[in-house]
Design a protein around this nucleic acid. Structure first.
Lengths: 225, 225
DNA sequence: CTAGCACCGATTGTTCTACAAACCTAGATC
DNA sequence: GATCTAGGTTTGTAGAACAATCGGTGCTAG
């Protein structure tokens, strides 16, 4: 039995070349294909034991999701978000996450998923498995947006969040960046459940601002643009 | 010289199979490929004089954009938004458009594009060219979202708006649906420029609510789900 | 007559081969 | 040292081929 992939959490993709998309997504999110590296068609096709054509179809999908960058006649490479991209990503996050949380109903099943993500992040943090912490963090915020019950918001947001993961991987200081997230996710969840969605949204807004500053700081230190 | 396609307005795509994506997008938006119709690979490949492989790559792109629906082993068909889709699309519109307009700076170059779109809509409405009115309407709201200077918001929103166009085409009562838009776009623009972004956002919120009701009404009358 | 079942044609999924076009690099020339 | 040219490499695209899957047709059994 194949271990449940991160991509499987998003949408119920099925067999065939969709599974290729999932496999690639997993590699990207796991950081095995590092941001910026060029992806040779023949090489990757060989690695996954698929034809070039099939691989190219997967490339188009992931390109449209923002995980791969496609330059005509020069092939595709793993997206490597610039500081401008990071700023844009956080703008989208604030717009979508805060807006969703503010209007979220009080008792929504996704709250369960949010709590589960917090717990997973807790465990992973104690084990100092920062990649897992990052994964749980993504799951938390995806669950938060799914409070909206809007497939389109969830899809767009999921893409943006996956892109942000690439930004984290680009400046690989995962422990430092992910440590504060765990408690703040928990705080947002508690306020949402015990006080009000609006109050939680306000906290989330600050949270995202701080998070953005941290990432941009890491970019500056790493000398990345 | 090729006439400027609608798709060209979105992003600066270049040559090759991207132009195939643009061609297909134009056909979809123009309603020449009606919502729900199945797209045969060999037939379309012949029509555009490209190979099946190339066409399939374009299919994956448009599928990811939500314009085509891809069912494994059963091919692709033009997306045919259900009422649930329409509701979701308007939820996204409210979330993004209102949020963007509320925070929009006072003097943004996109205001020019918005005014141009209003003018085009005016002319087209007088000529009773409702398809053009719809196109100008799309341009207006795309310009509105570009007030955010956020490429990702613009991209996601553009996809959703194109999908909505398919919803309009599905219940083809274009004149009735598009007529009120012209003046209300103008109103939103004026209030944004002369009063305040926040006031304009409030008006836009009502506008979108009314628009949603109209579309859903048309769906009900057409007996569509 | 209807429910089920086997078959068959059509379409999609995927691979392979082939080649033109664009790109990158390195060596040659001035 | 800068520019140009040639060659190898990679991408873009076409086309043929075949397995897998789907949809419908007609047959059979009850």
């Amino acid at each position: 039995m194949r271990t449940l992939s991160l991509a499987d959490h998003y949408d119920g993709r099925v067999a065939h070349e969709s599974s290729l998309v999932n496999q690639l997504t997993d590699l990207l999110i796991a950081g095995e294909l590092r941001p910026g590296v060029r992806l040779s068609e023949t090489a990757l096709a060989g690695r996954f034991d698929v034809s070039r054509n099939t691989l190219r179809e997967a490339f188009r999908v992931l390109g449209e999701q923002g995980l791969l960058q496609h330059v005509p006649n020069r092939g595709v490479s793993v997206a490597s978000p610039s500081t401008a991209d990071v700023i844009d990503i956080y703008r989208v996050r604030r717009t979508i996450e805060c807006s969703v949380l503010e209007r979220a109903p009080r008792n929504h099943p996704s709250a369960e998923a949010m709590r589960a993500a917090v717990d997973r992040a807790r465990s992973a943090a104690q084990a100092e498995d920062w990649l897992q912490v990052g994964t749980a963090n993504m799951a938390f915020h995806n669950a938060l947006v799914s409070l909206s019950d809007s497939p389109r918001l969830m899809r767009s947001f999921g893409n943006v969040l996956a892109e942000l993961r690439l930004a984290f991987l680009k400046v690989e200081v995962l422990d430092f960046l992910h440590a504060p997230f765990v408690d703040r996710n928990h705080e947002v969840l508690e306020v949402y459940l015990s006080e009000s969605p609006a109050a939680a949204a306000a906290i989330l807004g600050h949270y995202l601002g701080d998070s953005e500053r941290q990432v941009l700081g890491a970019y500056a230190r790493a000398g990345q643009s």
